[in-house]
Design a protein around this nucleic acid. Structure first.
Lengths: 162, 162
DNA sequence: TATTGTTATACTCTATAACTATA
DNA sequence: TATAGTTATAGAGTATAACAATA
């Protein structure tokens, strides 16, 4: 009953694990796919000394000169306290400037420096190239569907019942 | 020059932030969408006192009785050291058992208890219902495309140049 | 010598309460 | 009183090195 069945291969892990139950969940597949994309993105941004959050913040600041930290935090869906260290890092590296808003001295106006804009250009080019490579086996139609679907999912949160 | 221009609305954040540059990246859209799905999943699993990781581990153990921690870690794409605390929690709550494998006394065979299998049934039902609700605005065609696309992305990692 | 599970540790991301300075 | 930014802190998730027991 408890006798060991003779095994030819040296790998006891030869029997593959079934994830049949989980596979059908969109959430499960998205987590796994997102992990792939994220780890690729981390590697891509490494040479620029950027992480996902610092990269995203830099892009938004370049594209929206003068915005405040709270606006950035809301746009990135990050809590304000967590925004501070991100901004601190970008400022310390002289990629952005933090200037008091004259009309509201509580707030800071964030702007990219020339150095920040140059890093922005390089980082975006690298991310674009890596993403194109990662998605090379998806045709244009599939990509369009994915983008559309991702937007639908994002909207599903707020409009719980229009 | 520095006079405050009279504003009608009380909200200075009225000017919306443009994320046009980021929007076209699949990775960006996936992160945002995944955040929505994840936070919904967290809420869904809360009543069962499960997190994504403990939920995933429980499902895989129920579906693959007797598997080892290292197999589970590989299946979940989690480092072995991080698997330990997850398994600890499931065992402490008597949802699974950890039995020494007779043929390899280094390893543990993981099995779900009756309590574990019951929680599995309830949790899966809840997750299924919540996911259906979250994706209610996506037709079957879109879901199929998404699932297929997520698999393509996952495969893109390993087969860098088949 | 290699592998299973473990401990310790560290870094990132996330989340909340409470403070300050301004409004 | 409310808001912008900050500090402190705690919880998750993730990653690596090093160890004991076993193969």
């Amino acid at each position: 009953m408890k006798k060991v069945a003779p095994r030819s291969g040296p790998r006891p892990a030869a029997v593959s694990v079934s994830d049949a139950t989980l596979r059908s969940f969109v959430g499960y597949q998205m987590k796994r796919a997102f992990n792939v994309i994220q780890s690729d993105l981390v590697k891509t941004l490494k040479p620029f000394d950027l992480r996902m959050l610092t990269y995203t913040a830099l892009v938004l600041i370049v594209d929206n000169p003068g915005l405040r930290q709270s606006q950035l935090a809301e746009a990135m869906d990050v809590e304000r306290p967590n925004m501070v260290v991100i901004i601190d890092e970008l400022e310390r590296r002289e990629l952005i400037t933090r200037d008091r808003v004259q009309t509201d001295r509580r707030a800071y106006a964030l702007k990219a420096t020339l150095k920040g804009r140059r890093l922005y250009e390089k980082a975006i080019a690298a991310v674009t190239a890596h993403e194109a490579d990662l998605l090379r086996d998806l045709d244009e139609d599939a990509r369009t569907t994915i983008l559309a679907a991702m937007k639908v999912i994002q909207k599903a949160k707020k409009g719980d019942q229009s």
